[in-house]
């Protein structure tokens, strides 16, 4: 039995784990799968007689999780100076404590 650790950049959450596992565990010769969304890696133990790494990668790619390719989608790219443009657009300015903050916390209530 052999094992291989594959980087799968699109495996970034546990609903992807369910899909990756579904794809791999159906594959004949795959004995054990650890799909880790935390580390975006898949550990596959397989019987080299029945299946090979290329096939595993192919199945992964078909399932939408190509090995080593793609990346977590980032909708907001960093800008040159990192001045975050979105902050300025926030309809939000406060230079006093919000009343609800005080009222909701019983500790600080003063009647």
């Amino acid at each position: 039995m052999e094992k291989v650790v594959l980087d799968v950049p699109l495996l970034w959450a546990d609903h992807h784990v369910l899909k990756v596992r579904q794809a791999l565990t159906q594959l004949d010769g795959v004995e054990d799968v650890y799909a880790s969304s935390a580390w975006k890696q898949v550990l596959v133990k397989y019987d080299p007689a029945k299946v090979d790494r290329a096939r595993i990668e192919q199945v992964l790619a078909q399932a939408g999780y190509p090995v080593g390719q793609g990346q977590t989608p980032i909708l907001v790219e960093p800008t040159e100076k990192r001045r975050d443009p979105r902050w300025g657009a926030m309809d939000f300015r406060m230079s006093q404590t919000y009343r609800a903050d005080i009222e909701m916390s019983g500790d600080f209530r003063k009647w």
Binding site: D14, S36, S37, A38, W39, T72, Y98, M104, S105, G106
Partner: peptide, 26 residues
């Protein structure tokens, strides 16, 4: 929104228990 969040902070004693490895979405 803010009042709802504060209401939960002060009145609803909830917490998240993350068991096992934690991924980006978690």
């Amino acid at each position: 929104a803010r009042e709802i969040l504060l209401y939960n902070k002060y009145r609803v004693f909830a917490f998240v228990l993350a068991l096992g490895e934690v991924d980006d979405l978690k």
